[in-house]
Amino acid sequence: MSRLIFPFLAMPASPSTRLRLSSGLRVSRFLLGSWTALVLAFLYLPVLVLVAYSFNASRLNVLWEGFTFGWYRSVWENAPLLQAARNSLVIAGVTTVLSVVLGTAGGWLLHRYRFRMAGGIETLTAIPMVMPEILMGISLLVLFATAGVPLGFTTVVIGHVTFSFPFVLVAVRARLRGLDPALEEAALDLGATPLQAFWLVIVPCLRPAIVAGALMAFTLSWDELIVTFFTASAASATLPIRVFGMAKVGLNPMLNALSAIFVVVTVAFVAFSAYLKRLAR
C-alpha cells in the first residue's frame, strides 16, 4: 500500500532506512502525546490540587496534615459568603432572562427588518463585548451617580445585561442567517399573525442559539468582578467581590473549599449544556 502511495519507498530501500522512518514516526507520536499531556496538566493540575487541598486539615496550603470536611463546614457557616452566593445567583438569573429577551428580540429586529442605521446599531450593540470592563464599570458608576440612582441590585443587573445580551444577540443572528426565510411566510400564510409566527415558529427554531446565549450570559454574570465592583452596594455584593475581598486579607483554605464547589457546579453546568445540545440534534 505504502509503495503505491509513496513511490520513493519503492526505491531499493535498505531495512535500516525503513526502521529509521518508523522509529521517527514513533518519536514524533511520543512528542505530540507528551505535549498534549503537558497542556492538559497546565490547565487542570491547579484545579485538582486546589480540590485536593480543600480537604487538607492544615491551615497552610503547602503541607498535608490529614483529611477534613472542616473547610466546607466553615463555608456553609459563613453567612456573608452565603448571602453573596445568593446575590450572585439572583443577579445572574435576572441578567440571563433579560439578556435572552433583549438579545433575541434585537437579533430578530436586525435580521428581519431593514431600517436606517441598522448596520451602525448592530456594531454599537457588539462593542460592549470587547470594551474593557474597567471602562464600562467607571462609566456606569458616573452615569448612576449623575442620574442619582442608588447603587444596588438594579444597577448591577443593568451593568451585567449591557455586556451579556450582545452574546445572545450574536448567537441568535448566526442562527437566523441559516434559517429558511420562507418559514415565517409559511406561518403567516397559514393564518398566524406576525407575533404568533415569531413565537410559534421562529423562537422554537432559535432554541439552540437562545440556550447557548443564555448559558454564556449566566456564566459571564456569575463570575464578573470589575463592573460589579463599580456598580454594587455592600448589600448587593456578589460572590466574586466577597472572594476577592477575602483573598486580599490572605489565602484561606475556605477559599479552596469554595472553589471546589464552583468547579463541581461548573462541570455540572457544562455537562448539562452538552446534554441539551445532543437533545437538540
Binding site: 420562507a182 409559511a186 403567516l188 400564510d189
Partner: peptide, 20 residues
Amino acid sequence: LPPYRRPVNQVFQSYALFPH
C-alpha cells in the same frame, strides 16, 4: 390584506416545513 387574513395558502419552493 395581510397574508394571514387571505383565504389563500401556498406551497413553498423550499417546502418551509416547521422543523421543530
